[in-house]
Amino acid sequence: MQHLQALIILLSFAWGSVAIAAPDHTSDHQHQHQNVEPSAALASKRYNAFIEDLSESNVAIVNVLGMVCDFCARGIEKTFKKDQHVRKVDVDLANGQVLIAYSVDKVIDQVEITDKILANGQNVTAVTVVKI
């Protein structure tokens, strides 16, 4: 059994050193896999359904890597809904995209959006803001 424990510890060191050396290494892959372009999202049925009942809003179209699981994406919706300026959130698993509707008085900070997505464990590749 000591061999097993030694193996676990060795693996810990090996993976840990990689994680410490490249703490944000997930972003290394950001440019290798581009999501659906925001311009394409603007023309999609999903986007049109999302903005149907909206007015006087700014919509952030956020492309996300690693959003492959409904259960794992729950934190994204919860995190953004804590913001009182957020009126609506939609998660599109198929296209790796999140739509966030803000009230117009909110100054949208792309870094804040990126940080909130990262806090859920995913990476942002692009943010486009559209005024409705």
Binding site: W15, A19, T26, Q32, L65, V68, C72, G121
Partner: peptide, 17 residues
């Protein structure tokens, strides 16, 4: 502890201790 995560558009890989 999440030791390593790799996100791509269509996948996610994780290693935990």
């Amino acid at each position: 502890y999440l030791l390593d995560r790799q996100n791509t558009q269509h996948s996610q890989r994780n290693v935990y201790l």
